[in-house]
Nucleic acid binder design. Structure first.
Lengths: 143, 143
DNA sequence: CACGCTCATTAGCTTAGCTAATAAGCCTGG
DNA sequence: CCAGGCTTATTAGCTAAGCTAATGAGCGTG
């Protein structure tokens, strides 16, 4: 590949691209009025099954008090339910409620119309780049 | 390429990766105490030269009142200076101050240590993927 | 030259994140 | 077997980052 960029340049460009794209994604929050943050947490719960707040905060790379707030919003909407931990009285288990799962399925249909539409406009090769980049970005975010 | 993913799946993974990586980037704000948002705006000013608040808000994909706040923070720190527009009394021209440029150069040295370190651990091919993906993400963010 | 537009800002709100402090529950060492 | 220390979740209180609506100043045109 001829693409050559200094590490500094790449870093800068990637950071700016992430910053702007993130802003853009947050602007698109039509269905169900869930924010990107809330959606991400709910998705983690669907994938991870019943998680404690701490586990969820770790999955989302957020501090526990931050997760408390996110969870509170999701609970207000009845999208998750909490059950006591079977053996540890301090802990609590969070799961998507039936309604929460229904919302996620709704999303899966209308999912991210804006981004999906954009990606549909890409060439197969570009999409392929994005696919592989997404995996790399996940690795970056995971630490 | 063998990587195959449904558009929905790709969309979801990309969104989550962006969300988490963005959170991660915001956690790393050591040098000079500039946030990612402030740094991005200051960088736009360095690249774009003297811009009006409106132009800067468009470059950063943010509403004008949001940019007013970001600019105020940068001004407090003496990192940008404002001069009256030569022909239009409503407008104002923003530029990085000498100190602002110095801070950016500082950054350029210590730039994004965490991300740069991570990228350095990638293979050449992976870096290449990220390079090309960064360009695609920029295009996505640009609309 | 009055009216309508644009620009920047202010006011006021929400979301999203943080740290520090608190209360409850668990567990272990003496 | 229980006192003290750790872990978990939450509360309190802060900042940053975003938005919309409203305001006031200045421009420009019919």
């Amino acid at each position: 590949m001829v693409t050559q960029a200094s590490p500094e340049e790449l870093t800068e460009r990637l950071r700016d691209a992430i910053t702007r794209l993130n802003r853009r994604l947050r602007q698109e929050r039509p269905v169900g009025d869930l924010t990107v943050t809330q959606l991400s947490a709910l998705t983690s719960l669907r994938i991870g099954g019943a998680l404690t707040p701490r586990e969820l905060s770790e999955a989302e790379r957020v501090q526990p008090p931050t997760m408390t707030k996110i969870v509170a919003k999701l609970e207000e909407r009845g999208l998750i339910s909490r059950t006591p931990h079977p053996t540890d009285g301090r802990q609590v288990l969070l799961s998507p409620s039936e309604q929460g799962l229904a919302v996620l399925e709704d999303y899966q249909r209308v999912r991210d119309e804006w981004l999906a539409g954009k990606l549909a406009g890409f060439t197969a090769q570009e999409r392929d780049t994005v696919v592989r980049a997404a995996a790399l970005l996940e690795r970056l975010a995971r630490d």
